[in-house]
Each structure stands twice: as structure tokens, then as C-alpha cells.
Design a protein around this nucleic acid. Structure first.
Lengths: 181, 181
DNA sequence: CTAGTTTGTCTAGCAGTGCTAGGATCACCA
DNA sequence: TGGTGATCCTAGCACTGCTAGACAAACTAG
């Protein structure tokens, strides 16, 4: 019955619309401005339809986060070398602060606890791992975690104006110099 | 007029009580559970008194954050060497997650933008700087910012279960090895 | 083509949030 | 003792996430 398929398709499309609206609003005005009523308005439906697509508001933010993780993964895959990876990562975080917050800063959302790591996140991690591998005698995973942590710290402290804004490049230089030895 | 001084003292004390209540509640149930009504209950006053002490809810969280920064500063001052500093920093973050969030993760609060950095934060930063100085040929500030960023990244990603929980020590080893060369 | 059922959506509302205006109550001082 | 000011609380606003129940549309069956 193609009618049913068409319906399912339309539903899915509307779900995407909700996520897109949430992302757009968050990127424009920050996550505290993202409310169910505003989202419902943007999608031109009433609030309850949101809950027929997502369990709650956090699930919507989680969907946005997943989108961001996939896009970050693409950027990291394109990048080559430690410098390329670092630049790609930090540029992404700087250019999409709200998106990055949803991915790795905001408290609730995806738990990532023990095992249920999204494949796209694992892929992104592996891109980083490939970058650091040449400089790790052993235990590349630990070094990758450290590399990621450093990038994450640089991105978030920078975003919060806790670091000298015009010295990010120097900090990255230093980080790469440390790893490459 | 000592009566007036006594009053001022009592007021100040009550302000401290509010901050203490906020901190306790945040550490026990997370920041999303900290509401003006619950705080007012704990202090045994009505909501409006909170606003005679603090501009808004964020200001209360900022006061808690400042308290945390001072305590972190004390811990870092006691620590010696890169290893001591790193351990002190990460232990503090792990043992007081809500406090650490108020300090460096939650969005609003203290801006720290351009100049108005709290002296206690500057002091904490200088403790880190003293630790990395022996290993920086030049531009110790950049290396300190990087060291701090790495610790911050390790602390927050760890808190969010994004890193292998039982490998924090290895990651710290790696970080210190990188800096000491 | 009609009757009944299912599916979809919306209106209205609940409990809770931060924050504030206004009135009441207390302590002080002449 | 009477007035004055500071102090505090009650009540309420506009908003939040979320949900129950009414309503209408669409599909199914006779």
C-alpha cells in the first residue's frame, strides 16, 4: 500500500523539519531560546505533534547533536595531518557554537554511557586516531583521547572567553609540537 | 551605631546562607533542581529576599562558582609539580561536578570577558603557570592555556562519560610526558 | 453511498519556573 | 505613644515542558 508509505515519508519529513527548526533557532538565539511553543510555531503545528515525534525536548536536542556529530565526522574525514584535524575541529566548534554545545557541552541528551556510542561519533574518533597514530609508540587510544580532550578544552574555554581570543593558533601550534615531538 | 553593623552582618550572613544552600542543592541534585522556591524554603524566607541579595538566579550560581574557584585555587597552590597540579585539578572536578559546572561549564554566569577576571581565578591560573614554566622555553602563557585546556577537556569529557573511565591516570601520564618532553 | 472505526490534530489545562508589584508588619526614634 | 522607614510576604504575571480529552478527518466495511 503506497499510501501508507507516503504517509510515513511525510511524517519522517516533518520530523526532520522539527530538528532543522530547533537547530536553526539554537544557532540563532542559543538553546535557552528553544522552546516547544516556538518550535511548534515554526513548523506550523501545535505543540503535541512534537511529542509524537520525540519523547521530550531533550530528545530533539539530541537529534540536533547527532546531526552535528555526523557533520563534524565529515569535516574530520576530509582533514589530513594533526594540524588539519585540529583546525577542522576547532573551526567547526567556533562556527557552530550552539551545535557544538548540543554535542558535547549541554548536560542531558545522549548519555554515551558504556557501549551505546553512536557510530558517527566512533567514526569521528577514528579520524582523530588516524592522525595521532604516527606519533604514538603504543596505546594510540589513550593519546587520541588526550588529543580530543585538548581540542575540546580549547574549543569550550575559547567559546567562553576564558582564553586570549587571538592566540588560538599559537595554542594549536604548541599542542601539535608537543605531540609530534 | 553597632545595631546597624549587626544588621549588616546578619544580612551578609544570610547572603552566605543562600549561596551555601544553592551549592548544597546543586551538588546533591544538580543545577536543574536549584530553583528560587526551593532555595527560599531552605533559607526559610520567601522568594523575594533572594532578589534583595542577588540580581537573579544566575548571580547566585555565579557566587557559588566564585567560591569554587577560590577553593580550586587553594588546592592548586598546595600542589607541586605538573603531576600534582593535574591530579589536584582533576580530583577537584571529579569530586565537585556541580561546582565545577558552575565555574567553567554552565553558559550564563560570570562573563570573564576582557579584563574583569576574578583575582582568585588569576591566582589559580598562575599556579598552573608556575608548574609549566620549567618546560616552556618561551611564551609560558600559551603553554599554560594549553595545559589548562587539556585538563578542562579531560575533566568535562570524563564527567560526561565520553572517555574510558578507568584510564584517566594514563591520559594524565601522557599529558605530562608530552609537556616534560 | 452510508455507518462506524481509527487515526490524526488541536484546544485547554496542569504544575512548575524566574521574577516583581503592592500591601502588611515590624522595629525604631522622636 | 505616635509616627516613620525599613523589611518581608502574599499574590500574581508571563513563561516553561508536557498531557488529557475533545474534535475532525480519513479510511474500512457493509
Amino acid at each position: 500500500m503506497p499510501a501508507e508509505q507516503r504517509k510515513a515519508k511525510a511524517r519522517q519529513e516533518r520530523g526532520r523539519l522539527i530538528v532543522a527548526a530547533a537547530r536553526k533557532l539554537a544557532e540563532a538565539e542559543g538553546w535557552e531560546a528553544v522552546t516547544t511553543r516556538k518550535l511548534a510555531d515554526k513548523v506550523e503545528y501545535s505543540q503535541p505533534v512534537l511529542y509524537s515525534h520525540f519523547k521530550n525536548m531533550d530528545a530533539i536536542a539530541a537529534a540536533v547533536a547527532l546531526e552535528g556529530i555526523e557533520e563534524l565526522g565529515v569535516e574530520l574525514k576530509k582533514a589530513t595531518g594533526l594540524r588539519g584535524l585540529a583546525d577542522a575541529y576547532l573551526s567547526f566548534a567556533a562556527e557552530h557554537p550552539a551545535l557544538y554545545q548540543a554535542m558535547f557541552v549541554r548536560p542531558t541528551e545522549l548519555t554515551f554511557a558504556t557501549g551505546d556510542i553512536p557510530p558517527s561519533l566512533r567514526a569521528a574518533f577514528q579520524s582523530l586516531q588516524a592522525g595521532v597514530a604516527p606519533f604514538a609508540k603504543d596505546d594510540t587510544e589513550t593519546l587520541t583521547e588526550l588529543f580530543w580532550s585538548s581540542l575540546h578544552g580549547l574549543a569550550t574555554l575559547q567559546a567562553g572567553s576564558r582564553l586570549r581570543p587571538d592566540h588560538q593558533h599559537h595554542r594549536v601550534n604548541r599542542l601539535i609540537a608537543l605531540i609530534t615531538g
